[in-house]
Design a protein around this nucleic acid. Structure first.
Lengths: 229, 229
DNA sequence: AACTGACTGGGTCAATCGACCCAGTTGCGT
DNA sequence: ACGCAACTGGGTCGATTGACCCAGTCAGTT
């Protein structure tokens, strides 16, 4: 309603568009729905953006570049590599659970970019970014536990991205927390098996998934944290 | 144009709708675009289907139920478990490469089902079906090589589905054949590590991924076979 | 406090959407 | 060959869409 600089207005419209896309998909993100979500009038839209396509292109750009957190590794000096990876994956999964609509919007935007002629490269860049972040996490995990990856981290990063994608997609479809956590345990086991322990660390032994469940018997429960605005 | 039974007409409209969705997404699959693709007139649409939603619901139903091939295991009595899984995954990947639009349409329909109120269960059923097929493949692979899965196959099936989903999604985004095959090698290694060799089979040893690449150094090349029509 | 350019609000436009209608035509069962 | 139900074709409808316009209003500068 009140006056505000263009940059601010553009930014607000972008987050509003993202929220609308999360709820109703890209096709539901009409100019009217977006300005409604942002609490503006329709004319403000074409003042801030050339067109709807223009906004969507910028949104994809911002979203790809702003992608930050993949694995948040706990600072536990006693944990071995597999446990560390499992904890990191669980923390990622908690993020997904806390805001499922965000993940849906991400997939939606990726598919939109893939099928829009001028934006073919965006989806590719997005996955390159994912791998980048995954590689950083893998490097740090190995360093902390004194392990060495047998193959280049970039290769392994692609494996990690594939696993998180698969876990996320399946969970979005069936919302089965238990199964997702079981797959996370498998993923940690599989990734840890790709490393040699470099120093004097005790050998990695196959573990059950029980020790990585933060809240063991809490299936199908909505997360406490609300979606960030 | 000519007369034909309702069932035939419905069927043709369904496949036409699937093709349109593959090309332009669910939102692009308007009633006019669908009948155009099928070579019919607009009135035929509402003669065969109650509404556009009705067609989409039936399409999701058919697509979920008609899902068949996941892993096609080669009949090689000398292959060990990991090699068998790797070959199966490569054959799946070849299918994806042969008809990428089909996979895109599948993801598109899954997302549509997830965000459409009345069709929440369809996405869940789809993934249950995926796991079912994956479990069958895993069971057969273990049986052929005389191995035993340490955990229930249903658990492992979820892992396999996550991996194939992740591999497919990443490849659709960047079309990097080499990376996809490397991830497939990782997947086969990781899955095979979940089995105990039951009989007198030689122990599974870590292998490089070189032996499963059908065309080792062919990056970013479009597949030779064209999408099936 | 006056001025002026940045910004808003409400309205309009052609295009496209799903849905529907109905007079005409086709081809099957008999 | 004939009757009639199954089916087609062309047109229409209200709703929604992206885009645009312009007179009015606000805020920062002087």
């Amino acid at each position: 309603m009140p006056h505000m600089p263009v940059a601010e207005r553009r930014s607000r419209l972008l987050t509003a568009a993202f929220d609308v896309i999360a709820r109703t998909g890209v096709s539901g993100a009409t100019t009217r729905a977006i300005v409604d979500e942002a609490g503006m009038k329709l004319a403000s839209f074409h003042y801030a953006f050339e067109s709807r396509e223009d906004l969507l292109a910028e949104l994809v750009d911002v979203v790809v570049g702003g992608q930050e957190v993949v694995l948040e590794l706990p600072s536990d000096p006693t944990a071995d590599l597999e446990t560390l990876l499992a904890r990191g994956l669980v923390s990622y999964f908690d993020q997904v659970r806390a805001d499922p609509l965000r993940e849906r919007a991400m997939f939606e935007l990726t598919q939109y970019a893939m099928r829009t002629p001028g934006m073919a490269g965006f989806a590719e860049r997005q996955y390159a970014r994912y791998r980048e972040l995954a590689a950083a996490s893998l490097r740090e995990a190995a360093e902390r536990t004194g392990c060495d990856w047998r193959d280049p981290v970039d290769e392994l990063a692609a494996d990690l991205v594939a696993l998180t994608d698969g876990i996320t997609l399946a969970w979005l479809a069936d919302r089965d927390d238990r199964r997702a956590l079981a797959t996370i345990a498998f993923a940690a086991r599989a990734l840890a098996a790709e490393a040699d322990r470099g120093g004097a660390v005790s050998p990695v032994q196959p573990s059950t998934s029980a020790d990585i469940h933060p809240t063991p018997a809490e299936h199908h429960r909505a997360p406490s944290r609300e979606a960030a605005r």
